[in-house]
Design a protein around this nucleic acid. Sequence first.
DNA 1: TATATCATGTAATCGGTTACATGATTAA
DNA 2: TTAATCATGTAACCGATTACATGATATA
Lengths: 213, 213
Amino acid sequence: MERNEAYPITYGILGLLAFWGPLSGYDIKRLFDHMLAAMWGAAHSQIYKELRRMEELDWVDMKREEQEARPDRKVYSMTDKGREALSKWQAQPPDVFQMRDELLLKVLFGTFAAQGDLAQNLRTGITNHEMRLLTYRQSTQYIPVQGIFPHGDKRYNPYAAESEEDPYFRLITQFAIEFEKTYLKWLYEALDFVENRHEDVALEENGDEEDPS
Amino acid sequence: MERNEAYPITYGILGLLAFWGPLSGYDIKRLFDHMLAAMWGAAHSQIYKELRRMEELDWVDMKREEQEARPDRKVYSMTDKGREALSKWQAQPPDVFQMRDELLLKVLFGTFAAQGDLAQNLRTGITNHEMRLLTYRQSTQYIPVQGIFPHGDKRYNPYAAESEEDPYFRLITQFAIEFEKTYLKWLYEALDFVENRHEDVALEENGDEEDPS
DNA sequence: TATATCATGTAATCGGTTACATGATTAA
DNA sequence: TTAATCATGTAACCGATTACATGATATA
């Protein structure tokens, strides 16, 4: 049995090519950051490497566009074989989700943190997740048009407003927004908890629950 | 400048040793699955390797317990240096969270899936996350006692009921439950959408009113 | 009888990150 | 003047996974 020939990032690239036709590695990196930030991240070096691999698999075609003063643009487009692979992938059960969140680990072991460190980490988390929430709420401008595939040779401008929106992208954006809202709600509650319980244990006697946030 | 000497899994192990005193690699693996499943996963091979590394760093001490008919138990306990490292880690800002969820990727590119594949994947996700939610709701039996650190030489039975619960573990469990509830709510809505193929736009960002459950 | 669990590890590989490299153009 | 962006890659490394290995004991 042969080795795995593809993994999530492969299909991430393939999906972007299916939506937006021929793209360079640089284009793909930009779209990754805008479109796939909510579910998968990728460094540009990995995208370039993966594109080379996908070319060997005949999942993509490369056309070199010469430029003066800059390296040539290597523009990739999905092949029939690539389209088939993308469809086959959808027929396999998804990997079990695995959370990897260092902030949660730090909260769990908050007992071993010095005064104030945990609160500071929670505030950092709040800043990060507030920024994400904002990004996702503004991300509708990136919604791709529907039904390009399987005639995906045309190139669409991801920044242009389109009349027909892809319903799955809307679905993902909704998930990302709800996730960030849930995360933030918890972060604020956790921060409130660690700030108020460290002040003085004796305060628990009288009513200190009036706290307008 | 020297290489990183530790990363999240290192502190995961260290934190478990701080809570529950001397433990073997096998014990740690079991606790990882029960306590840290919501925020970090680890294979047993990685834990054994990491323990050897931590021994070289003098973050843990190892004592060999001989057994007949089985390999010796190598029982690790945290050193002062390890305790210091755990505390220093809490003073550093946490890594930015990076989601890696293949199911979300498949939903985003749902346009390229054959009839029924997407719904099937969503159902798999529902099964997985329902199981997680159940696990987290039952996980209160694993809540560790508070304030062992910094005198953490005693060993506590993680299965025993304790009067004083660690508030941070409770916090994490709450997060995990809220996360799974949010995820599941979205999964059911997404499944309904792909099964019924509404023309109207489902899933507007819901209001602030909470359902009183 | 077959599987699972206890209990421990090693080896090989892989997916992903970090660092290095180039050089023009544009914005602060 | 400094930094960022455009645009492309290579090389080294590292954290994590998968497969391999052993052998008793308990459970179905």
